[in-house]
């Protein structure tokens, strides 16, 4: 489960009633939840729809890189755990689509936007899973970063989103542990396994740090999201929290972080990392990651291959309804 801080929202706040807006903001400030039928500023609705849909898409696209390894998991225990985890991600996508639907956007529309390339999803999933260790690295780092992002969302001002996130966070608690345990078995395994683990860490470390979004200074609309209590911590704060939690975990594994500038600042008590390659981040977001096209194609293929099944289910439901109506009519006629 994965969110990426969203900063590219075009928020239009013109035309809303000032008094309604003030009352709305007072409720948000008072930590009350906003519910689907409540009045809300149009920009709040738009921001939420976009963020929740992106979040849902991330879950769904996120099934693909890990799904790669379900059939190749090296033990039955690992296989069951990975399958359950990827299935959970599908479930989380489903909860989130449903939360967005309460704001008046259908799942079909959202899926259409994903498949057409219009909608974004967390760019971490545009990196490939090359070895089994990547499954460990994703669980440990990507889920770890996601949890940092997601826990504050459990208190999001929008009720359905917050409730979905509570469920998601509860279910996710095993995901990161699963990944770290996997890394641990590799790090303590044969030299080849340890090499595999190190290689995975090398490839996933920086993209994981990018998951928190651009540095605060370049974050355009964070302010509004903060005021609306959709977002509660800044990108950099969450990123730092993640770094501080993760560096010692890497050391425990006996692995090296791929950052020559990494150092502990005794004064602040924080780990400091080197320069993040934001050019790479922008490129992957813009569609130029190693797997952007591949992932969307896979989703499109699944959707197209499933069209006849969905049509059949709908056709059957229609037929049955018609039959029932006909039977009822016949019965009424007989009674008359």
């Amino acid at each position: 489960m994965y969110t990426q801080a969203l900063n590219n929202l075009d928020i239009d706040t013109t035309g809303d009633d000032a008094a309604l807006e003030a009352r709305f903001q007072a409720r948000v400030d008072d930590e009350q939840r906003i519910e689907p039928n409540d009045w809300m500023p149009e920009a709040y609705r738009k921001t939420l729809v976009r963020q929740i849909a992106q979040h849902a898409h991330s879950e769904i696209v996120g099934m693909l890189p890990e799904g790669n390894w379900i059939t190749r998991a090296p033990s039955l225990r690992r296989k069951a755990a990975l399958l359950a985890k990827v299935q959970d991600e599908g479930g989380h996508g489903l909860y989130l689509y449903a939360a967005a639907e309460t704001l008046g956007k259908s799942r079909e529309e959202m899926v259409e936007e994903l498949l057409s390339g219009k909608a974004k999803y967390s760019s971490i999933f545009n990196y490939p899973t090359l070895t089994w260790a990547d499954i460990g690295a994703i669980g440990w780092l990507v889920d770890g970063a996601a949890i940092m992002n997601q826990i504050p969302l459990c208190r999001c001002s929008y009720g359905p989103y917050s409730r979905a996130m509570i469920r998601v966070c509860k279910e996710e608690s095993f995901h990161q542990r699963q990944g770290y345990e996997l890394m641990l078995s590799l790090a303590k395994g044969t030299p080849e396994q340890k090499e595999m683990a190190q290689d995975a860490l090398n490839r996933w470390w920086w993209p994981s740090l990018m998951m928190f979004g651009p540095p605060d200074g370049e974050s355009i609309h964070s302010g509004k999201s903060m005021a609306w209590k959709i977002k509660r911590f800044s990108n950099d704060d969450l990123r730092q929290k993640f770094i501080d939690a993760t560096v010692p975990q890497a050391h425990f594994l006996g692995l090296e972080l791929p950052d020559p500038d990494l150092k502990f600042n005794e004064e602040t008590g924080h780990w400091e990392v080197g320069e993040i390659d934001w050019e790479e981040f922008q490129q992957v977001v813009a569609g130029n990651g190693p797997c952007n096209r591949q992932r969307i194609k896979q989703r499109r293929t699944a959707h197209e291959n499933g069209a006849w099944v969905r049509e059949a289910a709908t056709a059957y439901a229609d037929k049955r309804r018609a039959r029932k109506a006909a039977a009822a009519a016949a019965e009424a006629k007989e009674a008359a």
Binding site: G67, A84, Q298, G306, A307
Partner: peptide
């Protein structure tokens, strides 16, 4: 389990994974 992520609809993806598990 080969279906995971590729089923005709999300609900069915989850259902097939349950059977596989």
């Amino acid at each position: 389990s080969e279906w995971t992520g590729h089923a005709p609809m999300l609900e069915e993806d989850i259902a097939l994974a349950n059977v596989a598990l």
